[in-house]
Design a protein around this nucleic acid. Structure first.
Length: 457
RNA sequence: GGCCACGUGGCGGAGUGGUUACGCAGCGGACUGCAAAUCCGCGUACGGGGGUUCGAUUCCCUCCGUGGCCUCCA
């Protein structure tokens, strides 16, 4: 008997029992990266969190009954700016291709190290321009959008319940507006669906009779890609909490008005923000931490556990101390879970995860497995959660501290020490132990009388 | 200024209207020639103030603190 899955829905501000629209196919869309720079640890949070949601759904509904779409946004002003900066001599479109291609490859390498499964579909925005145009024309035709000065704008007042996701009544937003309003907007809240391309910028034939080439606004790509791969409505839409407004609010407005539906996704999930050593991560503070940097010092599995130690909706403070603790925990678990893995996660862990992805509770349950005869269950749970001893071992081998002493020498010194202890020459015995420690080798005298060693971290 | 979230023991971090979270660190014990590793055991908590209640860390109000968002790159 599987536990009932309950998830917190940003749209309703409460936990709800999850029931897919189509019981034969659970559909989830998560906003992926805009590929203009190395992914930082804050970007890793939604990727890891929703990877776990994906694993959980596959377990509950069967792997062939879940479709997970995570996009790559490869058209964006930040990309254009980066491309122009990195490759000043190159044609802008070629430069953009270089930036997006290499950034995407790096992103995939990072995720591989973090134990993240591939989504079922990973669409790129530039491959869905036709769907975007189609959506825009539907919106214009139904009066939800209009053309002005070669732009297409979404008419926010045309949607009576705009603002429901972010819980911002229209009046409040207008009152709090602090940005100059473009003159071609009918309403201050209207947002861009399509805009004209400047010379040299990427451009595509425009919709709605606009003569000049253009490019999509920020939000339309996700409406287009989720439609193409998941349909007009689907089950779960995820991302970071910073995306709730305006990105998700506007996505939702576009899709619902284009398809005349009451919902876009039934359930909206948002992960909390991440800070580094108690401070907001920013380039000016110099605490901007990329996944790549972290992987130089820590195995991906440790980063993964560190991320899951905090409940996904809570703010997380990313610290070296926390990483050290996670590394130790993972090491202990892998030391214990050496037996054949159970094919399923431990029931108590599954139950915790079904309770709005309560990973801290799940981790506590794993500690309980350690204490009892739960080795096989622990191994199975670790595998289920995406932790892989082989990957960890590979990282450790690649990053092992260089010892100035060979393994044979270590073994012979251990033998020497055993002999000294047998003769009760403890001065000699302790000297050997200290010398090895100074060389980075820590000895362990086990209960069975044997002595083993490990490289000191 | 508007909207929202968070504030738990030395640290990390769940949860709950009235019984132990859990982990790390610490302390005590076992083991050890002594340590380390390992095993067993132990302790301290719910930001301030008010209210509701027989009873609040848990609900309400308020204050303080921390953080996020407030769009077309301004």
């Amino acid at each position: 008997m599987l536990p009932e899955l309950k998830l917190y829905n940003t749209l309703t501000r409460q936990r709800e029992a999850f029931a897919p629209l189509d019981p034969k196919l659970v559909r989830m869309y998560v906003c992926g990266p805009t590929v203009y720079d190395l992914a930082h640890i804050g970007n890793a949070r939604p990727v890891i969190v929703f990877d776990l949601v994906y694993r959980l759904l596959r377990h509950l509904y069967g792997p062939s009954h879940v479709k997970y779409v995570r996009n790559i946004t490869d058209v964006d002003d930040k990309i254009n700016a980066r491309a122009a900066q990195e490759y000043p001599g190159l044609d802008l479109n070629e430069a953009i291709a270089k930036v997006t291609f290499s950034t995407e490859a790096q992103f995939h390498d990072d995720l591989e190290a973090l134990g993240v499964l591939h989504p079922d579909v990973e669409p790129r925005a530039t491959e869905h321009i036709a769907e975007m145009r189609d959506l825009i024309e539907r919106l214009v035709a139904s009066g939800h959008a209009y053309v002005a000065e070669d732009h297409v704008l979404f008419s926010v007042p045309s949607m009576p319940d705009y603002g429901r996701l972010s819980n911002r009544p229209l009046e409040d937003m207008i009152a709090g507006a602090r940005v100059d309003v473009a003159p071609y907007k009918r309403d201050a809240m209207d947002f861009v669906l399509w805009k004209p391309s400047k010379i040299g910028e990427p451009g595509w034939p425009s919709p709605s009779g606009i003569a000049v080439p253009g490019r999509p606004g920020w939000h339309i790509e996700c409406s287009a890609m989720s439609w193409k791969h998941l349909g007009e409505t689907f089950d779960i839409h995820g991302g970071g909490i910073d995306l709730v407004f305006p990105h998700h609010e506007n996505e939702l407005a576009q899709s619902r008005c284009a398809f005349h539906t009451g919902v876009m996704a039934k359930l909206w999930m948002h992960n909390g923000f991440l800070q580094v050593e108690g401070e907001k991560m920013s380039k000016s503070l110099g605490n901007f931490v990329t996944i790549r940097d972290l992987l130089a010092d820590w195995p991906g599995d440790v980063l993964r556990l560190n991320m899951l130690k905090t409940h996904y909706r809570q703010p997380i403070d990313w610290t070296v101390k926390g990483l050290e603790e996670s590394a130790r925990t993972l090491e202990q678990w892998f030391d214990i879970a050496t037996t054949e893995a159970h094919p399923r996660p431990a029931p108590a862990v599954l139950e915790a995860l079904c309770d709005d992805l309560n990973t801290p509770k799940a981790i506590a349950e794993m500690h309980a497995l350690k204490d009892h005869a739960g080795k096989k269950a622990l191994a199975g749970t670790l595998a289920f959660l995406g932790f892989e001893p082989a990957r960890l071992a590979a990282w450790s081998a690649a990053h092992a501290p260089v010892l100035a002493i060979s393994e044979q020498e270590i073994e012979s010194r251990i033998a020497e020490r055993i002999a000294a202890r047998r003769n009760r020459d403890f001065a000699a015995s302790d000297r050997i132990r200290d010398e090895l420690l100074a060389q980075g080798v820590a000895l362990k005298d086990n209960k069975d009388g044997s002595t083993t060693w490990e490289a000191k971290r």
